[in-house]
Design a protein around this nucleic acid. Structure first.
Length: 457
DNA sequence: TGAAATGTTGGGGCG
DNA sequence: ACGCCCCAACATTTC
């Protein structure tokens, strides 16, 4: 593309300077770059960011603004509607071109398509990039030409593309920017912070932003990657990467993770298998985006249509007991309290709490998905949808309907010393509720329910 | 990336 | 020595 005088870089969930294709292209192709963030949650369909995500976003925007400042640029913030915000900034600065990195959630992708048309209508050039995925949702397909529904063949098909990934782009040393004039909105004015300050636990647990992401990745590569094969299943150990919120907000990208892991392998080749397992987890993230793109209704509807007839037994009391960590199953309650306190839960424990909610308590999986959506700092529509439908047995490559986790056995296996439970349930010895359901009986009831919908097919 | 029930095998105690 | 039983350990099937 030819040289432009001034270009807008529209930041969304690519809140980083390094390995940011839209930003690098803008700097390469324009003399002057205007970094812009537009706050328009009502344009995100049924899934505007939840409370924990808003908290993270507030911090992350602050971090991005600070690092832009050190490079000579200002992060300009506007309220939506996005089209008028971008057009307004373009008019004020004389920008003729807009760069952004793609998002893939159905409602957002549709908004972006309409927006691009509208901007072009207004005389602006638009260019979009991939910053978030090794393989975009349309970047691979089965031999029949359709989308994958099973992870292993999907991931196998990505292997070649993984090897040919370009190396991460460097962060720009300096950004030539320009003044936008007034009508600025401060990040603090966006209403992202909770009115009641319940967020001290989150603040203690996390450092949102690009710098925090790189520290986390570095620490993981040095101290946990080599043990990832077994350590990843241990909620009592600090052996997972905890990169999920950083990846969701694009404070780091998968290519950067891949490069860091490969670099770590130079010093410790024996960690190859563990590294492959970690990269495979990034693959699940890719698979989730692939699925949500090709089956856009699955954020609210089961992919397996038989589940429309499943005999869920909605109970506000049981749902609330689960949310508050008062089910009487220690590993479940510990997980739900870790989630409430830190905005995050170990993946193994996510599977256990989700299994209990959907199978033993027979609450609709969407209720669990909505609670996670509001409370997780890494809430991601694609990953959340995949995870819940997988556990409930109604999704792609789902756990078979009869796969029901026994929380007691899972705790013995994956939290053998009880350290995780004690950390989050320090008061468990007194005033602790007895199990909300009998495991054996509720398991049998779930199996009976699944047998009924199975028979209909 | 499941759990429980059921089936099989083989070692050792014992009459 | 031999057969019988018990049962742990493992394998297979079922949900």
């Amino acid at each position: 593309m030819s040289e432009a005088a001034t270009a807008i870089v529209w930041f969304r969930r690519d809140l980083r300077l390094a390995d940011n294709p839209a930003l690098s292209a803008a700097i390469g192709h324009a003399q002057c770059v205007i970094p812009l963030y537009v706050h328009a949650p009502d344009e995100e369909g049924d899934w505007p960011p939840g409370a924990a995500s808003r908290w993270w976003l507030h911090r992350s925007l602050g971090s991005l603004a600070a690092s832009l400042r050190t490079r000579g640029a200002t992060l300009h913030v506007r309220r939506g509607p996005t089209s008028s915000a971008i057009i307004g900034v373009a008019r004020a600065t004389g920008a003729t071109r807009v760069y952004w990195n793609r998002l893939y959630e159905p409602a957002i992708a549709a908004r972006d398509a309409r927006l691009a048309a509208e901007l072009r209508e207004a005389g602006l050039e638009v260019e979009c990039f991939n910053a978030a995925l090794f393989v975009e949702p349309w970047g691979t397909c089965t031999a029949q030409g359709g989308p994958y529904r099973v992870f292993t063949p999907f991931w196998r098909s990505c292997a070649g593309l993984l090897d040919s990934q370009p190396g991460p782009l460097p962060a720009p040393a300096r950004i030539h920017s320009a003044d936008v004039g007034n009508s600025a909105v401060r990040i603090d004015d966006l209403g992202l912070q909770p009115a009641i300050r319940w967020d001290s636990g989150l603040a203690n647990a996390w450092t949102p932003g690009e710098e925090g992401a790189h520290e986390r990745l570095q620490r993981f590569c040095e101290s946990a990657l080599h043990a990832y094969d077994t350590g990843r299943n241990r909620p009592d150990l600090p052996d997972t990467s905890r990169l999920s919120p950083y990846l969701h907000f694009g404070e780091i990208g998968p290519r950067q993770c891949l490069a860091a892991v490969r670099n770590a392998l130079l010093d410790r080749p024996s960690a190859k298998a563990a590294a492959d397992t970690f990269i495979r987890e990034l693959g699940w993230r890719e698979f989730a985006h692939h699925l949500l793109h090709h089956f856009p209704h699955t954020a609210t509807e089961p992919l397996d249509t038989r589940f429309g007839a499943f005999p869920w037994e909605p109970s506000p009391d049981w749902l609330e007991a689960w949310r508050r960590g008062r089910t009487g199953y220690p590993i479940v309650d510990a997980g739900m309290r870790e989630l409430w306190a830190t905005g995050w839960m170990h993946n193994r424990v996510r599977m256990i709490v989700a299994s209990l909610l959907t199978k033993n308590l027979r609450q609709p999986w969407l209720e669990g998905a909505r609670w996670f959506w509001d409370t997780l700092v890494d809430a991601d529509l694609a990953s959340n949808t995949l995870g819940w439908q997988w556990t409930a047995g109604c999704g792609a490559d789902a756990a078979p309907y009869f796969r029901i986790f026994n929380p007691t056995l899972q705790a013995a296996r994956h939290d053998p010393d009880g350290a995780y439970v004690r950390r989050w349930l320090p008061d468990a010895l007194r005033d602790y509720p007895s199990p909300i359901v009998d495991f054996r009986e509720s398991r049998a009831a779930a199996l009976a329910g699944y047998a009924r919908i199975k028979a209909r097919s």
